[in-house]
Nucleic acid binder design. Sequence first.
DNA 1: CTTTCACCGGACAGGTTGCCCAGTGAAAAC
DNA 2: GTTTTCACTGGGCAACCTGTCCGGTGAAAG
Lengths: 166, 166
Amino acid sequence: MREATVGIDRLDGRIIVLLAREPRIGVLEMSRRLGVARGTVQARLDRLQSNGVVRGFGPQVDPAALGYPVTAFATLEIRQGQGRDVRAHLATVPEVLELHTTTGTGDMLCRLVARSNADLQRVIDRVVGFDGIVRAATAIVMENPVPLRIIPLVEQAAQDSEKTQT
Amino acid sequence: MREATVGIDRLDGRIIVLLAREPRIGVLEMSRRLGVARGTVQARLDRLQSNGVVRGFGPQVDPAALGYPVTAFATLEIRQGQGRDVRAHLATVPEVLELHTTTGTGDMLCRLVARSNADLQRVIDRVVGFDGIVRAATAIVMENPVPLRIIPLVEQAAQDSEKTQT
DNA sequence: CTTTCACCGGACAGGTTGCCCAGTGAAAAC
DNA sequence: GTTTTCACTGGGCAACCTGTCCGGTGAAAG
């Protein structure tokens, strides 16, 4: 299942961008706007999904609206050989939105949310209240000037593949 | 536009979870599986979206499949008063997937992707090649044991609101 | 020159959407 | 206690979209 970096062309890029801007749009409407046949859009979409370029269309839920307006990043230092256990532990904490193992200072980086700054303490306690975590450094998010985005990269990739061709 | 933390009940939670598991599902099919009337699901979904709980259904694109298999987090230290310019600068870099301003060590944290470790150098150069950025510390992601997720939190929130009631 | 392939334009049945409505039960307001 | 409010139900309707299949075309590859 090693996905071998599949390129996308301009049409693919436009499909993704269109989908990102108006997710509820249908294949037919897309084909109209892009000026291509419906079958083409359908085939491209199928390919993008089986390619793994487009993973899915899950709902984007705002933690703040759920009552978790505080976001933080925690850098964790792990005791040698405890990685597996720590990962399993963190996976059970709902407030842990994602977890990465990294190089550099610290061994893991995780994104947390909490109901308030006070509640963040509870979350952190739960996160680090586990053997194997030696130390944790937390950075609370104040502002989010660039929310998670992918479109600029998609456009970049679409352009690159064009240049590469011929 | 201050969204005032709206609670969700079990049905809302089930709708979101269902949508997350099978994004292409329609309102009618949802109503069948949840055992409620179609109009109810429709109304709930509308409410969740105008609530801001569900932001949308944009395509989830995998950077790796686009040719950007390397992810990294960079902690940036900013020169006093340069925040605005730095934000604007980083927003123009496609490889910057998100950017936060934080408390703690460093002033900003951003997520980067690159075509390779070597390419990461180019990205970092471009990111920090800007007046106002004093220092940058980069952590390369090796593994991603917990990919960005929201469902556990949704379930938590749905349960909480139940307990709160009565 | 022939094969291959992506795309086009069109067609079809079946399912779904958006919308509306009256009826019901329960909780809230009076 | 009575009335109002509100979410939900179950149903119906026209318009639309989806999945699917088809033959035809042009360009690129063999």
